[in-house]
Design a protein around this nucleic acid. Structure first.
Lengths: 160, 160
DNA sequence: AGCATTTATTTGCATTTGCAAATAGATTGC
DNA sequence: GCAATCTATTTGCAAATGCAAATAAATGCT
C-alpha cells in the first residue's frame, strides 16, 4: 500500500461496499419472501413513487440501463406487476413514449414490501442520531448532484 | 406516491444512485483511457492496498462475488496484470489457498490510474467541507459495520 | 404534403454474472 | 496412515447485462 492512496478512505470504495452490502442482504430477502429480484423492487418503488413514468425517466430514477430495463419490464409485465401504455394520439401527446404503471397487484405487492424495505434502512442506520441520518442523506444527495453536473459538462463538450 | 414511503429520502436509493453515477462515469473513463473495466480497477486497487490477498479475501474487499472474481482474475492474469500463487507447502501454510499479487505492469498501471481515481473523488465531493467529508466517510463506514453485524446474526441463526 | 432529422424504445449479440455442483487440497478421528 | 469431513477455489450452465444497430414515431424543412 502506498502513501498517496488510502483505499479505506476512498469515497467510491466506501460507497460501493456499503451499497452492495445492503443491496445483497435485501436482495436475498426479496427473493425468498416475495420471489422478486432487487431490480424489480427498484422499478416498483420508482413507479410507486411516481406513476406513469416513461421508460427513459424510469431508467434514470432506478439507475438501470435502459435496454436492460426494457427487458425487465417485459418480464414484469408478463408477471402482471406493471403495464406498458402507449399514449393515444392526443393533442400534444407523444406516442413515441411508453409509460409505465403499476397494476393493482403490482401496487399491493409494493405496499406489502415497503415495511421490509424500511426495516433494512433502519438496520443500516442503527445507532445513528436523527441529525446524522439527515446529514448523511443530504450529503449523498449532494454527491449525486455533483456527478450530474459533471455529466452535463461532458454533454456540453460533446455539443461544442 | 404514498405518505409512508418517500423514495427520495430512502437511504438505499440515495446510496445506489450516487454510487452508480460515480462508478459509471469513472468506468467510461477507465475503458477509454486504459482499456480496463471498473471491476479490474477494483481488484488492482485492493491488491495495491494489500498484496497477496487470497481470492476469498479479495472478494470481500472488492465486493465482487467469488466465482465472478475467479474468472476475472483469469483474464487479468492473461493480460499480465496479476499473478496467482499457490503457497508452497510450508509449515503452517495452506495450499488450498491462492494468493493474488500485482505484476510489475499491474503495479505501475495502478499507480498511473490513482490520480484519475482521486480526481473523480474530488468531483464527487466538490463543495463539501473537510468536516463534511470526514463525517460522510465515517457514516458510510458505520453503515457497512451495521450490515456486517446483520450478516453475523444471520450466520448465528443458521448455526443454531 | 413529403423527405430528412431527431428522439424513444426495443432487439441482436457477445460478455458478465451468480448460483450450485465439481474439484483440489487440508484436517480430523479412528 | 487412511477414510470422512471440511474449506478454498474453479467450472457448468442459465440468466442478466450493455453496447450498438434497428425500429417506431415525432418534428422540421422546403
Amino acid at each position: 500500500m502506498s502513501r498517496d492512496f488510502d483505499l479505506k478512505r476512498y469515497l467510491p470504495y466506501l460507497l460501493n461496499r456499503s451499497g452492495t452490502r445492503i443491496a445483497d442482504s435485501f436482495s436475498v430477502n426479496l427473493r425468498n419472501s416475495y420471489g422478486i429480484t432487487l431490480q424489480m423492487w427498484r422499478v416498483m418503488a420508482a413507479v410507486h413513487h411516481q406513476d406513469g413514468q416513461r421508460v427513459g425517466e424510469l431508467s434514470g430514477t432506478t439507475s438501470i440501463e435502459i435496454s436492460t430495463l426494457s427487458r425487465l419490464l417485459t418480464t414484469m409485465e408478463a408477471r402482471g406487476l406493471v403495464e406498458r401504455r402507449r399514449p393515444s394520439r392526443q393533442p400534444g401527446a407523444d406516442a413515441r413514449v411508453v409509460t409505465i404503471n403499476l397494476t393493482k397487484d403490482g401496487h399491493s405487492l409494493t405496499e406489502a414490501i415497503i415495511p421490509l424495505a424500511l426495516q433494512y434502512e433502519e438496520i443500516a442506520l442503527d445507532g445513528l442520531s436523527e441529525q446524522e441520518v439527515a446529514t448523511l442523506k443530504h450529503l449523498l444527495d449532494r454527491l449525486f448532484e455533483n456527478m450530474a453536473a459533471l455529466d452535463e459538462e461532458d454533454a456540453q463538450k460533446l455539443a461544442s
